[in-house]
């Protein structure tokens, strides 16, 4: 029974194939570095170098083939973006609209630093505050009429 269930589960997965033959160490390091930059289409946020999926293995094969054929890193990234757009790159390039995503946090940090610096400096550099004016005595005009029994009662209560 266990073997049957196991067989059923395994049958629902793609037969795994080994990756293509590794290149010499220097070029293989390039393959792995490029693979780390490219997003696996079948996984959630994983690079094709880190994923075990069959699609990622196929894409790593392609990277290896392109490196072996003498393509530059830029050309290899271009091969994938021409098919999947910038989505294929785990780190979007800092150009066009993407520049906002890179610059905005820096601008906000800079703005915050300026605001904090100004707040800290202000008490030392600001001129001493003028002495507070003594409160103006209440004029008779502001006072309620003396014949208001309720106000008189409250005042009497407060004076206790």
């Amino acid at each position: 029974m266990t073997a049957w269930v196991l067989g059923l589960v395994l049958a629902s997965y793609a037969p795994q194939q080994a990756g293509s033959t590794l290149l010499d160490p220097a070029r293989e390091a390039r393959v792995q570095a490029l693979g780390k930059q490219l997003r696996c289409p079948m996984c959630q946020g994983l690079s094709i170098a880190d994923s075990n999926s069959s699609a990622a293995r196929a894409q790593m094969d392609k990277v290896r083939e392109l490196v072996a054929s003498g393509r530059t890193d830029e050309e290899i990234r271009g091969y994938f973006t021409s098919r999947y757009g910038e989505w294929a790159l785990l780190e979007p390039p800092a150009t066009g609209m993407n520049l906002l995503v890179w610059l905005l946090p820096l601008l906000l940090l800079l703005g915050g630093a300026v605001a904090i610096a100004r707040t800290i400096r202000r008490p030392a550099s600001a001129p001493p505050a003028p002495p507070a004016k003594p409160a103006e005595p209440e004029t008779d005009k502001d006072r309620p009429p003396p014949d208001d029994p309720w106000l008189e009662a409250v005042r009497a209560e407060l004076r206790r």
């Binding site: 069959s54 699609a55 196929a58 894409q59 094969d61 392609k62 098919r83």
Partner: peptide, 13 residues
């Protein structure tokens, strides 16, 4: 073989 054509076509699954 080895999904070479699928990668060329941008197959995702």
């Amino acid at each position: 073989e080895r999904s070479r054509m699928a990668v060329d076509y941008g197959v995702t699954g």
